[in-house]
């Protein structure tokens, strides 16, 4: 059977960081307790000149540096985000031009809260499988917004990852993928609003846990596998607690999720979150490793992926772009004043 999957990958995380404790102190809260409660030490903050388009371009360019693919052979680019720079005008065209993949190219922007990027992977897998394209880029990136003082302010961060999907020189085969979707209003943002609204406690059990658990269980059934068959598991990570709890509930160990759990150090990168986790796993993966990924997007749905790393990963020039660990380490701390200046300017109405 033809192997379809990931041919290359790249990630990007802006350099600025702000500690959860620093945000807490501004609002007169106990920073250490909040940090511990959320499982988030610090989060990434974009620079004034960074947005979802620049993060997408940097991720895609990192993926192209690692492989020898002619960008003109890329037949599709799908960018998933909830912070596309324009309300009308695609981010994908900017990426297409910046990686010289235009003009014979299918492009569209996706939106599905934090799982728009993994939905883009599924689209590309389908097109490659149908023989309509040789390669497709699936990108998930965000510069997510939170109202000052809102609980989300401790986690809403910025970052992204890009996956080149194809059927030649596949470094990680996507064996199975499926989704679990319902209409659940746990988190939303109306078109004219600057910051999102959320359903408070409603966001946990009937939303994140229900969708991830049902999706993951269906995937294990379809793949005829068990949690212990996987080397690594990645779950959407809106904070440091949810993915740990859902993994435990499903029977995955802390060792399996460690490599793909970045939220304590960079926060919740929304559409980038599970994808940066996957990039981090691919940074260290060896042939034969099996990877389990379940994303989550409010609204709500989960995309599940059963992935097997191939021998080709040894030939990919992984060193030609920074690893996720290196991106996490490249940081500059900012104070709340700088942070609020940046976020105010970024999300100007």
């Amino acid at each position: 059977m033809e192997k379809i999957g990931i041919v290359s990958y790249g990630a990007y995380v802006p350099r600025n960081r702000i500690k959860a404790e620093v945000i807490a102190s501004v609002w007169g809260k106990d920073g250490q307790a909040i940090s511990r409660g959320l499982g988030v030490i610090e989060k990434s903050v974009p620079s004034i000149d960074e947005d979802t388009a620049t993060i997408s371009v940097e991720s895609a360019r990192a993926a192209l540096r690692r492989c020898n693919i002619n960008p003109q052979d890329i037949g599709a680019i799908y960018v998933g985000s909830e912070s596309h720079p324009y309300a009308v005008k695609p981010t994908g065209t900017i990426v297409g031009e910046a990686i010289r993949a235009t003009p014979m190219l299918m492009v569209a922007d996706y939106e599905f809260a934090c799982k728009a990027g993994t939905a883009a992977i599924q689209t590309c897998v389908g097109f490659v499988k149908a023989g309509m394209i040789d390669y497709g880029f699936a990108i998930g990136a965000d510069t997510s917004q939170a109202a000052p003082g809102d609980a989300l302010e401790y986690t809403a961060s910025a970052g992204g990852a890009a996956f080149l999907i194809g059927k030649t020189k596949v470094i990680a085969t996507i064996n199975h993928t499926l989704s679990y979707t319902t209409d659940t209003p746990d988190f939303w943002r109306r078109a004219e609003m600057k910051y999102p609204s959320h359903g408070g406690r409603f966001t946990g059990e009937p939303a994140y846990f229900k969708h991830i658990t049902n999706c993951a269980t269906a995937l294990l059934e379809k793949a005829k596998t068990h949690p212990e068959d996987y080397t690594y598991a990645i779950f959407h990570q809106p904070n440091g607690k949810f993915p740990v709890n859902v993994a435990k509930k499903l029977g995955f160990t802390p060792e399996q999720i460690k490599q793909g759990l970045l939220v304590p150090y960079i926060g919740n990168t929304y559409s980038g979150a599970s994808m940066i986790g996957l990039a981090s796993v691919l940074d260290v993966a060896k042939p034969g490793d099996r990877i389990f990924l379940t994303s989550y997007g409010s609204g709500a749905g989960s995309d599940g992926f059963d992935i097997t790393v191939t021998d080709e990963i040894a030939s990919l020039a992984r060193h030609k772009a920074p690893t996720v660990a290196e991106l996490v380490e490249r940081k500059k701390y900012i104070d709340y004043g700088t942070y609020s200046k940046i976020t105010k300017l970024l999300f100007m109405e």
Binding site: S47, I48, D49, E50, D51, A53, T54, V57, E58, R61, P85, Y86, I94, A98, P322, M348, E349
Partner: peptide, 25 residues
């Protein structure tokens, strides 16, 4: 080079992207 936002025509206008530079890795 790195890909960044260069400027924008206010809040309703176009956003212009282009190159800026980083210290080489």
């Amino acid at each position: 080079s790195t890909f960044r936002k260069i400027q924008q025509d206010g809040c309703s206008g176009a956003i212009y992207y282009g190159y800026k530079f980083l210290k080489s890795h």
